[in-house]
Protein backbone atom coordinates (compact mmCIF):
# COMPACT_ATOMS: atom_id res chain seq x y z
CA UNK A 1 0.00 0.00 0.00
CA UNK A 2 2.73 2.32 0.99
CA UNK A 3 4.79 1.46 -2.06
CA UNK A 4 1.76 1.97 -4.27
CA UNK A 5 1.05 5.44 -2.99
CA UNK A 6 4.68 6.35 -3.36
CA UNK A 7 4.68 5.23 -6.99
CA UNK A 8 1.65 7.39 -7.58
CA UNK A 9 3.31 10.34 -5.99
CA UNK A 10 6.24 9.87 -8.32
CA UNK A 11 3.94 9.65 -11.33
CA UNK A 12 2.05 12.75 -10.28
CA UNK A 13 5.29 14.72 -9.99
CA UNK A 14 6.80 13.27 -13.14
CA UNK A 15 3.87 13.97 -15.43
CA UNK A 16 3.95 17.77 -15.28
CA UNK A 17 7.69 17.59 -15.98
CA UNK A 18 6.96 15.46 -19.02
CA UNK A 19 4.28 17.89 -20.09
CA UNK A 20 6.80 20.73 -19.86
CA UNK A 21 9.42 18.94 -21.92
CA UNK A 22 7.08 17.17 -24.35
CA UNK A 23 7.38 19.87 -27.01
CA UNK A 24 10.96 20.81 -26.26
CA UNK A 25 13.47 20.61 -29.05
CA UNK A 26 15.65 17.61 -28.30
CA UNK A 27 18.32 18.21 -30.92
CA UNK A 28 21.66 19.66 -29.81
CA UNK A 29 22.19 23.40 -30.05
CA UNK A 30 23.80 24.76 -33.19
CA UNK A 31 26.01 27.23 -31.31
CA UNK A 32 27.78 27.84 -28.03
CA UNK A 33 26.22 31.12 -26.90
CA UNK A 34 28.44 31.95 -23.97
CA UNK A 35 27.42 35.37 -22.72
CA UNK A 36 26.57 36.88 -26.14
CA UNK A 37 22.97 37.87 -25.42
CA UNK A 38 23.79 39.16 -21.91
CA UNK A 39 26.54 41.36 -23.36
CA UNK A 40 24.19 42.62 -26.07
CA UNK A 41 21.70 43.54 -23.33
CA UNK A 42 24.48 45.19 -21.35
CA UNK A 43 25.42 47.24 -24.41
CA UNK A 44 21.82 48.32 -25.05
CA UNK A 45 21.27 49.32 -21.41
CA UNK A 46 24.29 51.64 -21.69
CA UNK A 47 24.06 52.31 -17.95
CA UNK A 48 27.86 52.56 -17.62
CA UNK A 49 27.89 49.70 -15.10
CA UNK A 50 30.45 47.96 -17.32
CA UNK A 51 33.04 49.79 -19.44
CA UNK A 52 33.59 48.81 -23.12
CA UNK A 53 36.96 47.34 -22.07
CA UNK A 54 35.25 45.13 -19.48
CA UNK A 55 32.67 44.07 -22.06
CA UNK A 56 35.47 43.15 -24.50
CA UNK A 57 37.21 41.11 -21.81
CA UNK A 58 33.99 39.29 -20.90
CA UNK A 59 33.40 38.40 -24.55
CA UNK A 60 36.97 37.23 -25.10
CA UNK A 61 36.73 34.92 -22.07
CA UNK A 62 33.38 33.64 -23.25
CA UNK A 63 34.73 32.96 -26.76
CA UNK A 64 37.61 30.93 -25.30
CA UNK A 65 35.23 28.81 -23.21
CA UNK A 66 32.96 28.16 -26.18
CA UNK A 67 35.89 27.19 -28.42
CA UNK A 68 37.33 24.94 -25.70
CA UNK A 69 34.07 22.98 -25.77
CA UNK A 70 34.42 22.59 -29.54
CA UNK A 71 31.29 24.68 -30.18
CA UNK A 72 30.74 27.34 -32.83
CA UNK A 73 30.12 30.96 -31.86
CA UNK A 74 26.68 32.22 -32.89
CA UNK A 75 25.84 34.76 -35.62
CA UNK A 76 26.67 38.27 -34.42
CA UNK A 77 29.23 37.34 -31.76
CA UNK A 78 32.30 38.44 -33.75
CA UNK A 79 30.49 41.45 -35.19
CA UNK A 80 29.44 42.69 -31.73
CA UNK A 81 33.00 42.24 -30.46
CA UNK A 82 34.12 44.27 -33.49
CA UNK A 83 31.71 47.03 -32.53
CA UNK A 84 33.16 47.10 -29.00
CA UNK A 85 36.71 47.32 -30.40
CA UNK A 86 35.63 50.17 -32.67
CA UNK A 87 34.13 52.02 -29.69
CA UNK A 88 37.50 51.89 -27.93
CA UNK A 89 39.40 53.11 -31.00
CA UNK A 90 40.93 49.73 -31.91
CA UNK A 91 39.92 49.85 -35.53
CA UNK A 92 42.31 47.16 -36.79
CA UNK A 93 40.84 44.67 -34.31
CA UNK A 94 37.35 45.81 -35.25
CA UNK A 95 38.07 45.14 -38.93
CA UNK A 96 39.46 41.68 -38.07
CA UNK A 97 36.30 40.73 -36.15
CA UNK A 98 33.99 41.94 -38.93
CA UNK A 99 36.07 39.83 -41.36
CA UNK A 100 35.65 36.85 -38.98
CA UNK A 101 31.88 37.30 -39.03
CA UNK A 102 31.96 37.37 -42.83
CA UNK A 103 34.08 34.22 -43.06
CA UNK A 104 31.90 32.23 -40.65
CA UNK A 105 28.61 33.50 -42.09
CA UNK A 106 28.88 34.44 -45.78
CA UNK A 107 25.25 35.69 -45.58
CA UNK A 108 26.61 38.65 -43.62
CA UNK A 109 28.98 39.76 -46.43
CA UNK A 110 26.80 42.56 -47.81
CA UNK A 111 26.33 44.26 -44.44
CA UNK A 112 29.89 43.59 -43.23
CA UNK A 113 31.28 45.18 -46.41
CA UNK A 114 29.00 48.18 -45.81
CA UNK A 115 30.50 48.52 -42.30
CA UNK A 116 34.08 47.81 -43.40
CA UNK A 117 33.95 50.66 -45.91
CA UNK A 118 33.91 53.01 -42.91
CA UNK A 119 37.19 51.67 -41.52
CA UNK A 120 39.11 50.97 -44.71
CA UNK A 121 39.63 54.40 -46.09
Amino acid sequence: MRFFSRTRAVIVTALPLLALTACANQQPRLYGWGNYQQEVYQYFKSDASKSPEEQILAMQESAQKVSAKGQKLPPGFHAHLGLLYASTGKEDLAVAELENEKTLFPESAGYMDFLLRKYKK
Binding site: R29, L30, Y31, W33, P75, G76, A79, E101, Y111
Partner: peptide, 22 residues
Protein backbone atom coordinates in the same frame (compact mmCIF):
# COMPACT_ATOMS: atom_id res chain seq x y z
CA UNK B 1 14.83 43.99 -23.44
CA UNK B 2 13.13 42.22 -26.33
CA UNK B 3 15.72 43.18 -28.95
CA UNK B 4 18.49 41.60 -26.85
CA UNK B 5 16.60 38.28 -26.67
CA UNK B 6 15.75 37.57 -30.33
CA UNK B 7 19.08 36.29 -31.68
CA UNK B 8 19.04 32.98 -29.80
CA UNK B 9 15.79 31.42 -31.06
CA UNK B 10 16.26 32.67 -34.65
CA UNK B 11 19.86 31.47 -34.98
CA UNK B 12 19.10 28.14 -33.30
CA UNK B 13 16.26 27.74 -35.80
CA UNK B 14 18.86 27.94 -38.56
CA UNK B 15 18.91 31.56 -39.70
CA UNK B 16 21.69 34.08 -39.94
CA UNK B 17 20.63 36.93 -37.65
CA UNK B 18 22.17 40.29 -38.44
CA UNK B 19 24.09 41.54 -35.38
CA UNK B 20 21.45 43.51 -33.47
CA UNK B 21 23.78 46.03 -31.80
CA UNK B 22 25.42 47.01 -35.10
Amino acid sequence: GMFAQVSYPLAESGYYVLPVTL
